[in-house]
Design a protein around this nucleic acid. Sequence first.
DNA 1: TGCCGTACTTACCTCAAGGTAAGTACCCCA
DNA 2: TGGGGTACTTACCTTGAGGTAAGTACGGCA
Lengths: 126, 126
Amino acid sequence: MAASERRGPYFCGIDAAMDVVSGKWKSLILWELEEHGTRRFAELRRGLPGVSEKMLVQHLREMEEDGLVHREVYRQVPPKVEYSLTEHGKSLNAALEALGRWGTERIARIGAEKVHVTQQPATTRG
Amino acid sequence: MAASERRGPYFCGIDAAMDVVSGKWKSLILWELEEHGTRRFAELRRGLPGVSEKMLVQHLREMEEDGLVHREVYRQVPPKVEYSLTEHGKSLNAALEALGRWGTERIARIGAEKVHVTQQPATTRG
DNA sequence: TGCCGTACTTACCTCAAGGTAAGTACCCCA
DNA sequence: TGGGGTACTTACCTTGAGGTAAGTACGGCA
């Protein structure tokens, strides 16, 4: 969900799902957490080339509010915070599988470039 | 795809699919055309309460460029233009099914309101 | 002593998505 | 004669998503 509150009213399910997943980096965050299970803030930042710290924090907070990610704070110095997917986050990710496959086919069809990311895993969503 | 060109480079399939489906009314247009098979401009406008004519035209043109919708012009007075989904549009819609179901569950979970639309069909995406 | 690392917060700015409203050209109907 | 319908186009404006860059508090290390 965007920084400005929405949570409906919605036209349909797609609308409601989009509200939660729209945001430049949200689907990538979902994917990073799915891949690695649990990630620290700096790991996510490094895994999402180009993201600004401001947007990363903002998106993570919104996703936490929306019940997609869990935030675990370890009170120590230097600070340590771990992010992981909740059940809702995992099911959202599963629901995005088909869309990811469609997109991958589209990339092949139109011959679009892909951003080069070091150590990018090969998957159906890749 | 947005008015400003993108078509990549993309991070992944989700990114590519989102590029095509992001736009306030695109998923609704997809759904309208899926439901009715073929629709005229004014029918779409009436089916999407709140859409402005400018945005409807703009979205339809972009979706045509992206190979999602087919535009059939009948040279007559008054003008008649029919819109329908291409195979790519239909497969995109199918790929959105799971997401729609997830969103519908989310609506139920958080108890969000839905916009009241007269004659709205009852479906898994509704 | 000063730079790197942790995980943020804050202020400011830009740009484009989307909204509003009017104009176009033609016909039909009351 | 003028209001409504067809399918748009154009100009202008607002809003907010996202970017940039600096600041914070603390410790480790050279």
